[in-house]
């Protein structure tokens, strides 16, 4: 009896172990598989639209599904409704511009908040503030979008926009007209709200991990708070900062619903000032997929896939570039970590 159990156990254990290894391997490879699968599908789906448009897909300004209820035409070996033209430049510019504005606003605010959270407050206040920041990250984007439409856009239109136009003579992009408040600036503000918690939370953790004796050393040298942060903490966390900013940027470029609600959904035009209606790649995909499905040639769906491909590439490149930067700075950091005042 005992012998039999002894004999069987290793066999069972072997099978269990094999299953475990297989399951773990499958789980571990799933991120790669999914990424490859999604990229592959998006790429294959994009090809007809890229053949139809060529490089004009990236440089064209006219986005027109063509006469879906009319006749079809053939160009470059692919079929699409007559008049179809898929120029994605306004959406690419809209995506980059709105996410850039979001970062310009979010980085200093996040850094300031993170420093306060890491170094200035203690106990209940600290945990309360931290919770609030994390809660902000949890606000569904459609709620921010609603707030953007009802509160923020009218405020941008009646107060913030007119105020910023005073700087128009110095910075032409700030010149009026301000318009409805549905546009680039409001999109950037809403996106900033979404990005701030991401950058703040990561930066706070990074700042807390700066060894205490580094900071104490700075203080002992007679540095002010600002000098300690500027010359000791920030260089120490630079790698992680870049990573968290890239993370936030990716989020801002991919955000769909809130931007869709406040962007003014401009088509066929590039933004001419800070208040212009815009549209982003993600918003256009969400907006137009339903209509695209009524295109019997399926070219409209292919065009939206091509848009998805550009968005995917941009976010992947952002992440990759951030990682390269991080790796490069990691190599040299240990050597010249010394303080330069």
């Amino acid at each position: 009896m005992g012998m039999r159990t002894m004999k069987r156990m290793p066999a069972n254990a072997k099978i269990a172990n094999r299953l475990f290894v297989a399951a773990a391997g499958l789980s571990a490879s799933s991120p790669i598989l999914f990424l490859l699968l999604i990229t592959g599908i998006v790429l294959v789906q994009s090809i007809p639209a890229l053949r139809w448009m060529g490089w004009h897909f990236l440089t064209g300004i006219t986005w027109n599904m063509g006469s879906v209820y009319g006749a079809m035409t053939v160009k470059n070996g692919v079929t699409a409704p007559a008049g179809a033209s898929y120029g994605a430049l306004p959406f690419i510019v809209g995506t980059l511009a709105s996410s850039a504005i979001a970062l310009v606003i979010a980085i200093p605010i996040s850094l300031g908040t993170a420093m306060i959270l890491a170094y200035r407050v203690r106990g209940v206040v600290k945990s309360a503030l931290s919770i609030v920041v994390e809660l902000l990250a949890g606000v569904p984007s459609v709620v921010l979008g609603l707030w953007g439409v009802v509160v923020l856009a009218p405020w941008v239109s009646s107060a913030l926009g007119p105020f910023l136009t005073h700087f128009g003579p110095a910075i032409p992009f700030l010149k009026g007209p301000v318009g409805t408040g549905m546009g680039l600036l409001t999109s950037g503000l809403v996106l900033a709200l979404m990005v701030i918690p991401i950058i703040t939370a990561t930066t706070r953790d990074l700042l807390e991990r700066v060894p205490l004796h580094y900071r104490e050393g700075g203080v002992a040298l007679g540095m002010t708070n600002w000098e300690v942060v500027r010359h000791i903490c920030l260089p120490h966390i630079r790698d992680g900062m870049i990573g968290s900013i890239a993370l936030g940027w990716g989020r801002a470029m991919g955000e769909t619903m809130a931007v869709l609600m406040v962007s003014g959904s401009a088509v066929n035009m590039l933004p001419h000032n800070l208040y212009s209606p815009i549209s982003t790649m993600a918003a256009v995909i969400a907006d137009q997929l339903d209509s695209a499905m009524t295109d019997a040639s399926h070219m409209a769906v292919h065009a939206l896939s091509a848009l998805a491909l550009v968005l995917l590439m941009l976010t992947l490149l952002t992440n990759l570039a951030a990682r390269l930067l991080v790796n490069r700075s990691r190599g040299s950091r240990r050597i010249d970590l010394g303080v330069r005042v």
């Binding site: 599904m65 003014g264 209509s291």
Partner: peptide, 17 residues
């Protein structure tokens, strides 16, 4: 022309919602 989504003329300076 007409469809469930059309390419709105930019000249009008309107917005989409």
């Amino acid at each position: 022309g007409y469809s469930t989504t059309v390419s709105w003329p930019a000249a009008a300076g309107g917005i989409g919602a």
